[in-house]
């Protein structure tokens, strides 16, 4: 098992998923010839190709590793955790990951990407016989411009409704400017408590850029926000330009009547997500997470019928 986890880290750190690459290509083509924004996106695409060829990290900030692991009944999460920790240490030794875990107060680097609360592990037991793991590597620059709002927000005149959500997302992406390595992918979590609201926002980042939200109200807001945020003109790296975001993905969770949180998880263009399905000794690697699978249009149709 642990070798497959190591291979998942290598692939995730060095390969940008095809849906993100296509979106970056479209964004490049939308910028004026000779503009700094276009030259940024040309370099970004060159960098992606080079990283994949040479098995090197797309970005030196190999980020927080967020694991979502789905295991059959009877498989021990503790054993899986040991395997993931081994793979994390080995991946760091092989320079697939930068040593990226430091003591919160002293700043002392653990040297191997493990530490209190790192890597981030979520285990889910499911009914299948196979094991599936999804991995997201989320850089610190984009994490620093992520945000959480508590509605109502009087400064933005944002009430507890979809319009309120729209307003705070516009405000959050305006405030991020070029700091989070745009064009970004924006995960939005509506509801929950402060912790689960942000978790929902981060889980949205596992979705494919090409998918559609089965909830018509959220789907409408996602499409409207992509259009509106791209009219902000912040552009790639904050240089100005046509593409400020590549996608907006919104999920919701039940909340207390007293609370209405909206969380924004900003993901840089280097949206590193990878997946592995393991049956017996065989492993299949791709970029199709279990969360993404829930949002596939065909899955949606099946549920409806």
């Amino acid at each position: 098992m642990k070798k497959h986890f190591l291979e998942l880290i290598r692939r995730t750190s060095s390969q940008i998923p095809p849906d993100v690459l296509s979106a970056l290509e479209a964004a490049r083509d939308a910028e004026a010839a000779g503009s700094p924004a276009r030259s940024v996106l040309e370099d970004v695409l060159k960098n992606c190709a080079l990283a994949a060829e040479s098995s090197r990290p797309v970005c030196q900030d190999t980020g927080t590793a967020i694991w979502m692991v789905y295991h059959p009944p009877g498989v021990s999460p503790r054993a899986l955790e040991r395997d993931i920790l081994w793979a994390t240490r080995e991946a760091t030794r092989r320079s697939y990951l930068r040593p990226n875990a430091v003591d919160a107060i002293t700043g002392k680097n653990s040297g191997d990407n493990t530490g209190l609360g790192l890597p981030v592990l979520h285990f889910h037991e499911w009914g299948k016989k196979s094991l599936h793991a999804d991995l997201l590597l989320k850089g610190g620059g984009s994490e620093n411009v992520s945000a959480q709002y508590s509605l109502p927000d009087s400064a933005l005149k944002a009430g507890r409704d979809l319009e309120g959500v729209r307003r705070v997302v516009i405000d959050g992406i305006f405030k991020a400017q070029g700091q989070g390595c745009g064009p970004g992918i924006i995960g939005v979590g509506v509801g929950g408590d402060r912790a689960t609201s942000m978790l929902e926002a981060k889980e949205q980042l596992f979705r494919l850029l090409t998918d559609r939200n089965p909830d018509p109200a959220l789907d409408g807001l996602e499409r409207r926000l992509v259009n509106e945020l791209n009219r902000l003109g912040v552009g790639p790296m904050g240089f100005g330009g046509a593409t400020t975001v590549l996608g907006v993905k919104i999920g919701k969770r039940h909340r207390l009547p007293a609370s209405f949180f909206v969380s924004l998880a900003y993901m840089c263009w280097a949206c590193r997500r990878g997946s592995v399905s393991i049956v017996g000794e065989r492993a299949r690697f791709d970029h199709m997470s279990q969360i993404a699978a829930r949002y596939r249009p065909d899955a949606e149709r099946k549920r409806a019928s």
Partner: peptide, 11 residues
């Protein structure tokens, strides 16, 4: 301003 995320190109 260097290109954020273009880590391999710059390395």
């Amino acid at each position: 301003h260097a290109v954020g995320g273009a880590a391999v190109l710059l390395a």
